[in-house]
Write a protein that binds this DNA or RNA. Structure first.
Lengths: 125, 125
DNA sequence: CCTGCTACCTAGATATTCTATATACATGTT
DNA sequence: AACATGTATATAGAATATCTAGGTAGCAGG
């Protein structure tokens, strides 16, 4: 289902980022921006609710820690279930993406987006 | 933004399916199921509103045609703008997917534990 | 103090998908 | 004739995720 694409994306990315080590919200947002060269960013309105959902599902466990300067930080640590969920969601993500990419590639012979020379791809269905 | 992932998926797939030739709703649903081996399916509540949105945006143009048997069918034909939009959305889709896949792969040296062989989703663009 | 930066949080708007239902034509069966 | 089945389009309402836009607060420097 297409809903799955929407449902998981933020959670999947967060779980993945937290797999290496516990991080706090702001740090996660910065990490995502760095890793995707600015293509993807967490808005606060996406980030914090998503973290709370993961917590409610028991996939992460938060703990407070003081900052050397500024307000204290809420770190999130992956739970065992979170690690399992990460593996499943990664798998699921790849399945969906492959299905869509497969459909797109089948759709017209060319892969390149700009080379639609007009040759209609008649294909037997 | 992550919203983009949700926003376009159905529309992108529909535009792509219609690139080859005009089709009607039921046909599109069947075509998607076939192409993705049942992984993705359009539900009516997704399909028809999505087609109406594409029509409202001027990306497809519908026309009625009688069926040899059963109720008449509403075929949709890609417009010039629709063809352009398809190229853009395809490009956009690949950008987002690559960004996410890049983030996931960077996340931890290993791919998923069950190691999905080499199924790399990304493709050279 | 006041500005700026860090850091967390939430309410409400927006958009998309799914669930469930309705309508209607055509065909085959009882 | 009546009925179920398969085809075909459509929409209302629920569920959900993201974004917009704001609020609160600590710390440091001018």
């Amino acid at each position: 289902m297409l809903r799955e694409l929407r449902k998981g994306t933020a959670g999947l990315l967060l779980l993945d980022l937290l797999a290496a080590q516990p991080m706090y919200g702001f740090e996660l947002a910065e990490a995502l921006r760095e890793r995707t060269n600015g293509v993807l960013t967490f808005k606060e309105g996406t980030l914090y609710p998503a973290l709370h959902r993961l917590e409610a599902e028991g996939l992460v466990k938060p703990f407070w820690q003081d900052s050397p300067r500024g307000p204290r930080r809420r770190y999130y640590r992956l739970t065992a279930r979170g690690r399992k969920a990460l593996a499943e969601r990664r798998e699921h993500w790849h399945t969906l993406v492959e299905a869509i990419n497969g459909a797109l590639d089948t759709g017209n012979g060319t892969l390149s987006p700009q080379s639609r020379g007009g040759t209609t791809v008649s294909e037997a269905r």
